[in-house]
Structures are given as C-alpha cells and as structure tokens.
Design a protein around this nucleic acid. Structure first.
Length: 409
RNA sequence: GUGGCCGUAGCUCAGCUUGGUUAGAGCGCCGGGUUGUGAUCCCGGAUGUCGGGGGUUCAAAUCCCCUCGGUCACCCCA
C-alpha cells in the first residue's frame, strides 16, 4: 500500500463539512466586499519568490519545494499567494484598483506539527493599487468577519506598523547597535541575522528577553507612515474591530511595509496558533521588476488552522433517500430521483438497485437523510410512502405532492 | 535539521515489564431475527505480513540493533 507523503492530509468527511462551510463563507464574503475570483498557478519560477519574499527569510532559505523542470528551469511550488498575485496583476497590464480573492494549497518543506503541514491551504485577499489606509482596514475587517462568520471563538488581532523603507534606514542602525551590544545573549540564528535581516530578530521567541528592551520600528515611524497607521486604527475603531498593538510584530517576509497584522484564536491550542496574517506591501511590485509602483495590502488566512478552531458543524446531508422496494419500479425511481434533484432537493438512493430494503434503509440512516421515500406497490396508484427517520412516522403521499409535502414539514 | 512520545483488526486500544497454546476487547462493517422498514434490541460472521529489515533464542507482538512512518515540540510561519 502506498501512503500519503509526510505533511500532507486527506480531508474527508466529517471534517470536510467544516471546510465546505469555510470556503463558502469566504466566497460569499468576498463577493459582498467586491473581490473577484483569481485562480492562480500553484507553480511559479523560483526567482519570483526569492526576490519577493526575500533571500534571507526562512521560507526561501530552507522551506521551498524547488526543483528543475524538464526544460532546465528552476521552478517552485508556491509557498504563499501574494507574490504570484502581484505578478499576475502586472502581467495582465492592470492599472488602478483591482480586488482579488483566491483559495488553494501552498507548499513549504518543514517538519509537520499541529497546525503546520507541508501542503496547507489558504484563503487570500489582495487589495491591489490602493495606497490609502482604508484598504488596510478593509482587508483586516474582512478577515475578522470571516472568522466570526464561521464560528471561531476567542478571535484576537495583533497590529503593528513597521514604517516605510526610508524610516527603517536610521532605525536599522539603532537596532543593529543594540543587538551587537547583546550579541553574547542571542541565539545563533539571531546573531547571523544582525547583518542580514535585523528586524526579524524582534520576532524571535528564543530571544524574547533580549529583544524586550530593543528599539522598535513603531517609535521610529516617519510622519506619513505614522499618519497612515493612525488612520488604520481609527477605521478599525469605527468598525468595532478590537485589536491590540504589538510593537514586536514584524512578520517573516521582506516585502511588507507599514501595516502588519496577525489573527489568532485563544481556543486553538497549538504552538502555531496564528490563523492568518498580512499587511501592506507597497515595495513588492518593484522587487519583482515592475516599472510601475503598485501600492497594495493583503491577507492570507490558514484554512487548516481556522477549521481546527471552528466549532463542529452538524450537517443533514440529504432531504430524501429513495428506497426501491419493488425492482420492477427501478427505472421509475431513477427518473424520479433525477426529477427531485432537478428541483433542487438533496436526494440520494442506492445506485446498485440490487440491495435489500433493509440495507437500503441502513444506508438511508447513515446518509443523514430526513426522510425515506419508498417506491413500491403504491407507485401504481401514483403514491410513495414517506417515512420520517427521526420519528419513525410514515404516510403515503401522491408523487406530485412530495416537493410541497417536504416544504410543509 | 534536532528532541520527547507512539506504531497490534477499518477505527480506538489491551497484551510487551517477567519470551511459551489457535493474538484479544469495544466500536464499526456484513448477514439473520422482519417474504417492503433504519436508528434501538437479540443471534451469528468476516478481517491482522503485531510498521519494515536484521539479530538473540528450541521459541519473539514481547529482548537487542537498524530503518521507515505518525505525533507533539524547538526554529519559524498559515
């Protein structure tokens, strides 16, 4: 028997019922907020990610599924959505505002643990071509509503601003000085990052103590970034979205500027408890070689983790299970099942048309159907027997009145 | 990449310390009790390369070594 690859999952019922609810809620909300669907490649040129995400990030350094294709090109299974979405925006020749929603698998080669798989799923929103803080607030609000809508308890939102690149030139020096002074107390990884990517040290759990007194970007915002951030916060206040400021939240990818945020749930007990995150990434387009600037902000939510944090979903799968009690009526039953399905009812039957009535009833019970409808001798009088599985009560109903009878229940 | 714990029936697990009849239980599945009635109840049935390989032994699910997988955690992220 060949088994699954490490870190991949088969998502089957009953768990998949929660996935269906999440994906439908996402699709529904995206339309309400004016986001169009984007269906994106799962594979891109390696360079896209190394340039956009950043050479010195963990994702690029050690987590990418990268290989050479048969034409000798270096390709990578996408580790995230944003870079590809911006590439698509530029490739399409789009200008101005484009709001896109996407969903699908991402790939990162890591040791799996609770809430972290090698193939995982995200729903993603990108507000492209808009520099105003209202866009930041909108994607954050959207994410909050989505979590609310699917029943996640204890939703928390951490928020910060890391300012613009120009703000960080001076700040970076201050931070490096501080880190060098405490070099002996830092982990090996963090020491290495003092020169390559000092901001990321702020995020290090291992060095939380040292980092606690380090200078933070929030105290070194330029006037424009500071205004932008205060408008984001005031919009969130207006919308009634609660948040907490976290001056050490920087996020692991290089393309962010200004607003960064992360959602979590206090009900999701795992070391990897972040349900989603995102931020503004005005520099990204130019990182991947665009001549035009594309100010933008986006969010990616981890489906696997959200589903873990969701309440169980009770699903009645079917309205009617049709039992064929008289095999001579099989083709009548087949036509009728098709007819009911055509009317929008959720209907199933035993397609083998060969099993005993008893086993058809067992299957009906397992299917979660509300009602069993029996096609047998009464069919010749234009009737079927309708048995309500919950109560056991049974009555004969004219075939053409079944749809109405179901509505009356 | 590193560390802890765990791999026995479809699922959850007992048995392993102290090696010894045909390796068990519950749930699920299938059939019967009901010639057209599930869920409940009663009766019966099927299913195991005891994760894989090697070693010790008269004898290994049980002891030893290696290996693969799962899980949780570290690093970091969704």
């Amino acid at each position: 028997m060949i088994s699954r690859l490490k870190g991949t999952d088969d998502i089957l019922p009953p768990e998949s019922h929660r996935w269906r609810r999440l994906l439908r809620a996402f699709d529904d909300l995206a339309q309400r907020y004016g986001y169009d669907l984007a269906v994106m490649p799962a594979i891109e040129s390696t360079e896209l990610f190394s340039r956009a995400v950043g050479e010195t990030t963990d994702v690029v350094e050690k987590q990418m599924y990268t290989f050479e294709d048969r034409g000798g090109r270096s390709v990578t299974l996408r580790p995230e959505f944003t870079a590809g979405m911006v590439r698509a925006y530029i490739d399409s020749g789009a200008q101005g505002i484009v709001k896109l929603a996407a969903a699908g698998p991402q790939f990162r080669y890591e040791q799996p643990q609770k809430g972290r798989r090698r193939q995982f799923y995200q729903v993603d929103l990108e507000y492209l071509g808009e520099a105003a803080p209202g866009a930041d607030a909108e994607v954050i609000e959207f994410s909050y509503r989505l979590l609310e809508m699917v029943g996640v308890d204890g939703i928390g939102l951490r928020l910060n601003s890391i300012g613009d690149a120009s703000d960080r030139i001076a700040y970076r020096g201050l931070l490096q000085d501080y880190l060098r002074r405490h070099q002996s107390d830092l982990s090996e990884d963090s020491r290495r990052r003092i020169d390559s990517n000092p901001l990321r040290v702020l995020d290090s759990k291992a060095d939380a103590e040292v980092v606690g007194d380090a200078p933070v970007p929030f105290d070194h915002l330029g006037a424009e970034a500071a205004d932008h951030f205060s408008e984001v916060r005031s919009a969130l206040d207006t919308l009634g979205i609660p948040f907490e400021l976290d001056p050490r939240l920087v996020r692991g990818l290089d393309y962010y500027n200004r607003t960064v945020f992360e959602f979590y749930s206090s009900s999701f007990e795992a070391a990897q408890s972040s349900l989603g995150g995102g931020g503004r990434y005005d520099p990204l387009a130019e990182l991947i070689g665009s001549r035009q600037a594309v100010p933008a902000v986006g969010v990616a939510m981890g489906c696997d983790r959200i589903v873990e944090a969701m309440a169980a979903v009770e699903v009645r799968r079917l309205n009617i299970y049709v039992v064929v009690a008289d095999r001579d009526r099989t083709s009548d039953a087949l036509r009728w099942v098709a007819d009911l399905r055509g009317r929008g009812l959720k209907v199933d039957w035993d397609a083998s048309t060969a099993r005993s009535v008893k086993s058809q009833f067992k299957a009906a019970n397992r299917s979660g159907a509300d009602v069993v409808s029996i096609v047998g001798a009464e069919w010749s009088a234009g009737m079927v027997s309708m048995k309500v599985l919950g109560t056991g009560e049974e009555s004969k109903v004219p075939v053409e009145e079944v749809e109405e009878w179901m509505k009356q229940r």
